[in-house]
Amino acid sequence: MSSSPSTPVIPWSSEDMARRAAREIPAGAVVNLGIGLPTQVADYLPVGHAWLHSENGLLGMGPFPFEGDEDPNLINAGKQTVTILPGGSTFDSAASFAMIRGGHVDLAILGAMQVSATGDLANWAVPGGKVMGIGGAMDLASGCRHVIAMMQHVTKKQEHKLVSACDYPLTAARVVSLVITDLGVFEPSGDGFRVVELAPGVTRDYAQARTGAPLG
């Protein structure tokens, strides 16, 4: 598949990526949306489509509250005030992480720094950088039944983020089943990434030049 050199590359915006990620969520699924980019996925889910889990102890999370309706004791894992839907529940942290570790959360959509061809995820620390902490990242990555990573395809310095092997500290090994970037949707296949979908104007060659492992 080739396109003429004049076809403009239109990378997906973060809204496009969130809309695309929302399509991966089956009705009734229990889903944890990570801090940052993945939080936006909720904007593209009909209210009540899925059970949103927040690891600080909330299942059945609703939209952000209107101004004046905020409850400082009803927050998500990103410490933003949220709402709770009818049928939702709150619980202590030990129960919340038992849900995660025990495989009761169907899907986690997480931000990422690097994803390897074998599905390794690195999203908690930059080598030589200030250690911000782990939070729920390792539990979510290793405990949820499926993990989708969402990230820009390359760093601001144009370094690869889809790689053969992560050189950033790992969050969990062999857990990512799908990567959604501004250039498309990619599936770790062991020795590379299978192209599932490409953003408008993005050719396989264009994506390959920005990927640190073979695209299949």
Partner: peptide, 10 residues
Amino acid sequence: WRTARSIPTT
């Protein structure tokens, strides 16, 4: 109350 339960009860 609500998510203020999270860490305290553990």
